[in-house]
């Protein structure tokens, strides 16, 4: 890991997060792609300083770059692609229905947030406390 690559990964994460926080599904998608690239840099650099390609016989083994993070990064690339393809299909579907790709607020969640408290446990307890206090005041 070098400071330069750490910066590159951080920059990819920052721009990716910025896009993830948008309302357009297509921008969110691009954000996921950027975050994926950033995490690949992190994965790959976790193997230490880079060397030559890890192919037996091409060079002495001590000069190889670490093969395990490469395998992990490879998996990550492919999975990111799968996610991208699925989200693109969602975007297509969203266009089919609304002719746009805006991610709307969840209306149910909004209703829950605005709901008045109807907690019968609390009201039971308060009634009991009031009754108790009234009883003792009478004494």
């Amino acid at each position: 890991m070098t400071v330069l690559l750490a910066f590159a990964a951080a920059f990819l994460f920052a721009t990716g997060t910025w896009l993830l926080l948008q309302r357009r599904l297509s921008r969110i998608l691009i954000g996921i792609g950027l975050v994926g690239h950033g995490s690949n840099i992190l994965l790959l650099t976790s193997g230490g300083p880079s060397g030559v390609a890890p192919i037996i016989g091409s060079a002495p083994a001590v000069d190889f770059s670490d093969p395990l993070p490469q395998a992990l990064a490879l998996t990550s690339i492919v999975i990111t692609f799968g996610v991208t393809a699925f989200l693109l299909a969602l975007g297509y579907r969203s266009w089919r229905i609304t002719h746009d790709d805006v991610v709307e607020d969840d209306v149910e969640d909004r209703f829950i947030a605005r709901r008045r408290s109807e907690d019968h446990i609390v009201s039971d307890t308060e009634d009991a406390a009031r009754a108790q206090a009234a009883e003792e005041d009478r004494l």
Binding site: A6, F7, A9, A10, F13, A14, W18, L21, G38, T45
Partner: peptide, 21 residues
């Protein structure tokens, strides 16, 4: 606010990458 969150994430990843190395 989005910029602030994105910047915070960027800083955190930068620090994480350096400490991990």
């Amino acid at each position: 606010m989005r910029i602030a969150v994105a910047a915070a994430v960027g800083v955190a990843i930068f620090v994480f990458a350096l400490s991990a190395s």
